[in-house]
Simulated assay, not measured.
Amino acid sequence: MDFKTEGTLVEALGIEMVEMTEGRVVMTMPVDERTRQPFGYLHGGASVALAESAASVGAALLIDHEKELCFGLEINANHIKSKRDGIVTATAEIDHRGRTTMVWTIKITDEDGALICLSRCTVAVVQKK
């Protein structure tokens, strides 16, 4: 699968791919001036962008690109712990693979493995027109 990042939110936030396998995607993101909120901590929206990116790539690995597209349909996130700098890692794993939807759980952790954010993302699978 071609994973284009140039000119995307993924590039703007410094998100990098670590692992892409069937049913599992791992990505990293720096906690820096691009991803902090005004008070100096990791922005919850940046965590959500990382989580949805990981789930969307994971879903894209599982569809028939000749006939289907996939899009984030719903996402929630529980922000467990704050972080000021360093790197966070999102690990997305599939929980449900249906014909029209997939559900992914994404755990975002810090360098020590501490849970920063726990997210669930539903991805819609639609037929190309």
Rank of each mutant, 00 (worst) to 15 (best):
K4Q: 14
K4F: 11
G7Q: 15
T8K: 12
T8G: 09
V10S: 12
V10D: 10
V10W: 10
E11R: 08
E11H: 08
L13N: 11
L13W: 14
G14C: 07
I15Q: 09
I15P: 04
I15R: 03
I15K: 02
I15H: 03
I15F: 05
E16Y: 00
M17H: 00
M17S: 00
V18M: 04
V18P: 02
E19K: 07
E19Q: 06
E19R: 06
M20F: 05
M20D: 05
T21I: 12
E22R: 08
E22G: 05
G23D: 00
G23F: 00
G23C: 00
R24V: 00
V25L: 06
V25T: 06
V26D: 02
M27R: 03
M27I: 03
T28L: 04
E33V: 05
E33N: 08
R34P: 00
R34Q: 09
R36I: 06
R36N: 03
Q37D: 14
Q37R: 15
Q37A: 13
P38N: 10
F39L: 15
G40E: 08
G40S: 07
Y41E: 11
Y41F: 15
Y41P: 06
G44W: 12
G44M: 12
G45K: 13
V48R: 03
V48A: 07
A49C: 03
L50Y: 12
L50K: 04
A51N: 09
A51Y: 08
S53Q: 11
S56Y: 03
S56L: 12
V57H: 01
V57F: 04
G58V: 02
G58R: 05
A59T: 14
A60Y: 14
A60H: 14
L61S: 00
L61E: 04
L62I: 07
I63G: 04
I63V: 13
I63F: 06
D64C: 15
H65C: 07
K67W: 09
E68M: 10
L69N: 13
L69Q: 11
C70T: 14
F71E: 06
G72S: 08
L73H: 05
L73N: 05
L73M: 13
L73Y: 12
E74C: 10
I75G: 10
I75R: 11
A77F: 13
I80A: 04
I80T: 05
I80H: 01
K81P: 02
S82Q: 10
K83T: 12
K83D: 08
R84F: 04
R84W: 07
D85H: 09
D85F: 09
D85V: 01
G86P: 08
G86D: 11
G86R: 13
G86I: 08
I87T: 13
T91G: 02
T91W: 03
A92N: 01
I94K: 14
I94H: 07
D95N: 10
D95M: 15
D95W: 11
D95E: 15
H96G: 02
H96Q: 14
R97E: 12
R97Y: 07
G98F: 03
G98E: 10
G98M: 05
R99V: 12
T100A: 15
V103A: 09
W104I: 01
T105G: 01
T105E: 07
K107H: 02
T109W: 07
D112P: 04
A114R: 15
A114Q: 15
L115F: 03
L115C: 01
